[in-house]
């Protein structure tokens, strides 16, 4: 490779265009100065309150000793990551975690969207307000309370569901302690509790669609289904895409609070997830470095998935994040 020093070389041209471009860039930036000023406090906030802890999170690569502090604790590289990845139940933990989080996403999301559309479509105004307010309330029930409810509904002794099964001559099913059924209990109870809550967001999105579009559809005498298919759904698609993308980033979060309350020894094999393992191994035994390392592990997986999902979203629907 030779380097061309000729005065009219490409290099100089590029330099010139770079100068022009950068002055253009500066120009644009100057015009947008108010926006930079607007976001400045939040950026500072992020540097202090989000990156500050992340800087401390280097304990994932150290053997954290409180007396030595974060920065003087001995460096151990990937020891904690290894401890997690080579642990006895690693594959099962990842599998269970993925099953729960993916199932909650692909079963829960369409239902929430459906509810939002139904609420948006209905003509009964009072009914809508009532339904809307009611279905979002279960979000406030803690999982401890939900466990009590599930016990009443599902107990093989005197639970409602099993009463019905017994009445039809069936054998009672111990839903909460049977490995064959436990995953469904987790997934469906999560949908039960959270669908109403996630409906809010889609409803807000539906309300952001310009009424003119619906008026035009009415003029063209579109059927309700057509209206939903060609106006409502495309109207909230950006939000749906965004939420799917973000959920991809947290694919290894399967709902610690729920599992921790609902699971029991007989269903560990189908219920134990990464976070419950970390709780038993890390937090209870003063292994904060390990807990932080697992957090990073989840972040890396999330990062990879969100990058892929972003690519796909951009290509398919021009709806990427960056």
């Amino acid at each position: 490779m030779t380097i061309d020093y000729h005065p009219n070389s490409n290099f100089n041209k590029r330099l010139v265009t770079f100068k022009i471009r950068s002055s253009k860039l500066l120009n644009i930036m100057w015009r947008q100065r108010w926006i930079y000023l607007l976001i400045l406090p939040t950026v500072i906030y992020f540097l202090v309150f989000k990156y500050g802890p992340l800087w401390n999170a280097q304990i994932a690569f150290r053997d954290f000793k409180p007396l030595l502090g974060v920065f003087d604790s001995p460096w151990v590289g990937f020891k904690h990551f290894e401890a997690f990845v080579t642990s006895f139940y690693f594959n099962q933990l990842i599998g269970n975690t993925l099953i729960f989080s993916v199932a909650k996403l692909i079963l829960g999301m369409p239902l929430a969207i459906l509810c939002a559309i139904a609420l948006h479509e209905t003509w009964l105004k009072r009914f809508r307000t009532f339904v809307q307010t009611t279905i979002y309330l279960p979000h406030f029930l803690s999982w401890v309370i939900m466990f009590g409810v599930l016990l009443v509904v599902l107990s093989p002794g005197n639970g409602l569901v099993n009463d019905v099964i017994k009445r039809f001559g069936g054998e009672p099913i111990p839903f909460l302690t049977s490995p064959a059924h436990f995953r469904w209990v987790v997934i469906l109870s999560d949908i039960w509790k959270e669908t109403g809550w996630s409906t809010i967001l889609y409803l807000a999105a539906l309300l952001g669609i310009s009424p003119e579009l619906y008026e035009a559809a009415a003029v063209d005498s579109a059927t309700p289904i057509q209206r939903i298919w060609y106006i409502s759904l495309p109207g909230i698609l950006p939000v749906i895409m965004l939420i799917t993308l973000l959920r991809m980033g947290h694919i290894l979060e399967a709902g610690f609070n729920q599992i921790f309350v609902l699971y029991s020894v007989p269903v560990y094999s189908v219920g134990d997830i990464i976070d419950t393992w970390v709780y038993r191994q890390g937090v209870l035994q003063f292994q904060f470095s390990l807990a932080t390392a697992v957090g990073f592990f989840k972040g890396v997986i999330g990062l990879v998935l969100i990058l892929i999902a972003n690519k796909i979203a951009k290509r398919v629907a021009q709806q990427g994040l960056f």
Binding site: S87, Y89, P179, P266, Y268, Q281, Q285
Partner: peptide, 21 residues
């Protein structure tokens, strides 16, 4: 050191036998 795994295996197995799984 592997308490979470060891104790889970220990307990899970025993309970599986007790339950007839």
């Amino acid at each position: 050191a592997n308490a979470a795994d060891f104790l889970r295996y220990y307990t899970e197995g025993i309970v599986q036998f007790a339950l007839g799984q």
